[in-house]
Design a protein around this nucleic acid. Structure first.
Lengths: 148, 148
DNA sequence: TTTTATCCTACAAAACAGATAGGAAAAGTA
DNA sequence: TACTTTTCCTATCTGTTTTGTAGGATAAAA
């Protein structure tokens, strides 16, 4: 049970954009360098973030990618669902048809409960929270990093 | 982010043993049939449960596999760790050496927090809870099943 | 002694993760 | 305009993990 790298990189990409709130957008190249993510791999991450409506490329002066919402309005849950078709620990959680015992299965209920706990955790925390915490960490110790 | 089938089957195997508390042990064949798990695949599940000390094979009259502890003393967490080397959503959570930014990484803290939430959920629920709930479900609606 | 059950190791198909590669299209720049 | 850079799209590759199956040795039960 691991979180995939796309989700993790996606979060870091949004954090990068959220921090760099200088008015100008940010280019893929700079995100890749700052976050130490392969430039080409980032292609996929960005495509996904874009099609999920979390970021948008702007052109003209100050071109680059930008967040479509304020960091404090982007729940980590939104990023997660952008990279994972469903947040379902088991397929049968969201698809009752898969098992005729769906309605009277204590195990399914158990996993469903865990699923909810995870979902709530992800919904309760935003990209804004993350960059705030990152700033706090950095002012404590210096250095700049929120790499995983 | 899925739970693997071995963990799920492992839980169901323990539930099966916990229910069948007739004094006699239970044979692999019967577990396989009752839980609709491939007999041969169950080999691996059982081996793992055994080496984790959760079940033990007994011989003589009333032979078969038995739980080594009471159902209410087996946390689902114990089963989970039997089938997953660590409960770590990310490798860097348990291995600070993997990333020099470990101590000042808001993202890592975030995942760490989620990890704890999951861990607590798994530790707070036992096989005993699951079979109690299953009994309740079955007495409500009849039928017997806790398959995933 | 025959049958059945446990135990152990090897193998294999399929799915998935984590990337890399190439180039078309669009945008920026001189 | 010409050229350079950046974005965007699709295909491919490689390794690992998952989900099993297979075969047989060993031990136990009938």
């Amino acid at each position: 049970m691991k979180v995939n790298t796309k989700t993790r990189y996606g979060i870091r990409t949004l954090m990068e954009l959220a921090r760099n709130d200088s008015g100008a957008g940010m280019h893929q190249k700079d995100i890749a360098v700052n976050q130490d993510i392969s430039y080409k791999y980032l292609d996929h991450i960005i495509a996904q973030l874009k099609s999920s409506g979390l970021i948008v490329p702007v052109s003209g002066r100050k071109s680059g990618y930008r967040l479509t919402r304020k960091p404090e309005e982007i729940a980590v849950y939104d990023v997660f669902t952008a990279f994972n078709s469903t947040l379902a620990l088991l397929d049968c959680l969201f698809d009752g048809e898969l098992c005729e015992k769906h309605e009277r299965c204590a195990a399914r209920e158990f996993w469903d409960g865990l699923n909810s706990v995870i979902e709530n955790y992800l919904k309760d925390r935003t990209i804004g929270d993350l960059i705030d915490r990152q700033s706090a960490l950095e002012s404590q110790q210096g250095g700049l990093a929120y790499q995983i």
